[in-house]
């Protein structure tokens, strides 16, 4: 496997307080990884190191030559009243190549192509405020894909969305990964998102565990990661984290 981005012994923090300590982690080509951890565990900082927008105080981050990385922000951080259409928003990712306002014929074709690939070609002229949660996520993924990245990073892609949108986003990312795109995302949704991914990293300043969901979503790892004891049941081969009070009830159902 080829590492697209490698982090070696990285320590990183803000104002003297370390958020990440001695983290070693590599994103392989074709990876589909979820980073789980509580608030303040360093998930977003790890994304920043992978993106290259932050430098570790100790250790190193290296990116394979020619690897393009794109980023999809949290939907909740976006000003959805901003006066742009879907097509204009997607075209923004070409801002570093061409600064003038007018889109070239090739750019228009590229935008139309990526919107079509993500199933939102008919929304190109819509204002971004008029999109559903799933459509908003698709638009940002389209913007990220227009840069033709090898690695896509997403910050809490299912935060604040309903169950249907969560499924929609998960299936879309799975399709993109099958096409060869490496994906790393952060999530705090253990049951709805993390358990469905092929690979997880449990993070709390350090990497607590990494592997398949069945190896990471276990009470010992969760306690070290989240600082709270959690019960885990296996259901149809997938780990399910349950409320302590519901364990007896759900054991009966699962059994």
């Amino acid at each position: 496997m080829t590492a697209l981005v490698s982090i070696e012994g990285a320590t990183f923090g803000y104002s003297g307080a370390a958020v990440l300590k001695d983290v070693t982690y590599a994103v392989e080509a074709g990876a589909f990884t979820g980073i789980v951890g509580p608030s303040g565990s360093g998930k977003t900082s790890l994304l920043r190191l992978l993106l290259g927008t932050a430098k570790p105080q100790r250790g190193s981050v290296s990116r394979a030559p020619g690897v393009a990385v794109s980023y999809v922000p949290q939907l909740e951080t976006v000003n959805w009243s901003f006066p742009v259409t879907v097509a204009e928003c997607v075209l923004m990712s070409r801002a570093a190549r061409r600064a003038l306002p007018w889109a070239t014929r090739d750019e228009k074709a590229d935008v139309a192509g990526v919107l079509d690939r993500l199933g939102i070609a008919d929304l190109a002229g819509r204002h971004i405020r008029e999109l559903s949660g799933g459509q908003q996520q698709r638009m940002f993924i389209a913007r990220a894909l227009l840069r033709r990245p090898q690695l896509l990073l997403l910050d809490e892609p299912t935060s604040g969305v309903d169950v249907g949108t969560r499924h929609e986003v998960l299936h879309l990312l799975d399709d993109l990964n099958r096409d060869g795109l490496a994906i790393v995302l952060t999530t705090h949704d253990l049951n709805g998102m993390a358990a469905h991914l092929p690979h997880l990293v449990a993070l709390h300043q350090r990497i607590i565990a990494a592997g398949a969901p069945a190896d990471v979503i276990v009470p010992e790892v969760l306690e070290r990661t989240f600082g709270a004891r959690m019960e885990v049941l296996m259901h149809l081969g997938m780990p399910v984290v349950v409320d302590g009070g519901q364990v007896g009830l759900l054991r009966g159902v699962a059994g």
């Binding site: 608030s39 705090h188 709270a228």
Partner: peptide
């Protein structure tokens, strides 16, 4: 930083 609430 996103608010992550562990399932208890």
């Amino acid at each position: 930083a996103p608010v992550a609430v562990p399932v208890r």
